[in-house]
Simulated scan of single mutants.
Amino acid sequence: MNKCLNCDMWTHHEICPLCHAETIGEGVHEEGAHYPAYDMEEYKKKTRISRIAIFSGVLAVLACLVINIAVMPRFLWVFYVAVAVFYVLVSLNHTILSASHLGGKIVAQVVSLTVLLLVIDIMSGAIQWSVNYVVPFLIIAGILLMSIIILKVRLRWGGYVSFLLMMIALGFSPAVFYLTGIATVLWPSVVAALFAVATFSSILLFANQAFMTQLGRRFHI
């Protein structure tokens, strides 16, 4: 069996079928050694915790809705509870308990935090602190974190390409907020967009051929 260091996969070919890089022969490996151990009990435990969390979250939101309508129907503070429960469930089920890709967890955290901040901002009187300042720098932090991880893992960056492109695309959302009048402060939106452009430009300039091959496949080039 040969191993591709770029894709971190085993193949019988001397050229990787995914990135077309030259593979390295490392001998024959024991059957089943290519896959991680699967703990059924651990999976059942995580599934049970996830279902209990979802049930408890829905129950809490419904209880708060009834109390809100009965006590203070003119101010629907239940939305604060609902969006907080949404973020906690995303963090628990997708970030903590899930075996999902780290890149996907970062994207999910950025998106869910953005939703949380937007709802809180709107419910507090649409002061626009979220879209003006917090969301742009939150997205910048997400792009930066993803870039650092890619630089750190190096030979196992293939799985991060799609998620990095998602974060770069999100980098332009603050500019969209400003152009549509949702945001009122220009410079944070410009900084986020420029950072996204700079990151993408760095990929095009400094990435190796394998990375460019993966990038071309994402855009069907």
Rank of each mutant, 00 (worst) to 15 (best):
Q214I: 14
I54S: 07
T199V: 14
F86R: 06
P174Q: 01
N132Q: 10
L155F: 14
T213G: 13
G103F: 04
R217E: 13
I139E: 01
A63F: 12
N208L: 08
G159Q: 07
A33N: 14
V153I: 12
L76R: 11
D121A: 06
Y87Q: 10
L155K: 14
V197I: 14
N68Y: 00
S91I: 00
L138C: 09
L215Y: 12
L18K: 15
H12Q: 12
L18G: 07
R154T: 11
I139C: 05
V176M: 07
G25K: 15
C16N: 02
V85S: 03
K44N: 06
H34D: 09
L117N: 01
W187V: 04
S124D: 14
L186M: 11
I120R: 12
V61Q: 06
V115P: 00
T199M: 13
L92R: 02
Y178I: 04
V81M: 02
V153G: 12
K46A: 07
L89P: 01
V90Y: 12
P136D: 01
M40I: 12
H94V: 10
T47P: 00
A169F: 09
V131F: 00
V131W: 02
E14G: 00
L170Q: 08
T95L: 14
V191R: 00
C16W: 00
V85R: 05
N132F: 03
I15H: 08
H94I: 11
G159D: 09
H13F: 13
S56D: 05
G158V: 14
W10R: 14
E22N: 10
K46F: 03
G216P: 05
L113W: 08
F211D: 13
L59P: 10
Y133E: 05
M146P: 02
A84D: 03
S202D: 15
L116C: 06
F219M: 01
T180N: 12
A63I: 10
P36V: 13
H29N: 05
R51H: 11
S202G: 15
L76D: 08
A210S: 10
V78H: 06
R48H: 10
V161G: 07
V131S: 04
I221M: 11
I49T: 10
T11S: 07
L117D: 01
L145R: 11
I221K: 15
L145W: 08
S100N: 11
V190Y: 00
G216H: 09
R217G: 15
G158N: 14
W187L: 03
M212V: 06
E14R: 09
G104N: 02
Q214E: 11
A196D: 02
S100P: 04
T184N: 13
V185A: 11
E42K: 07
W157Q: 14
S98A: 08
L113V: 09
E42A: 13
Y133H: 10
F211L: 15
L151G: 15
V110M: 01
F195Q: 08
W187N: 05
N2M: 06
S173W: 10
V111D: 01
I120H: 13
I168H: 00
M166T: 15
S201G: 15
H101M: 08
V81Y: 01
N6G: 03
F79M: 07
Y133L: 08
V134E: 05
M40P: 01
F75G: 01
I52Q: 09
A192V: 14
M167I: 12
E22F: 06
V111T: 09
V190S: 02
G103W: 00
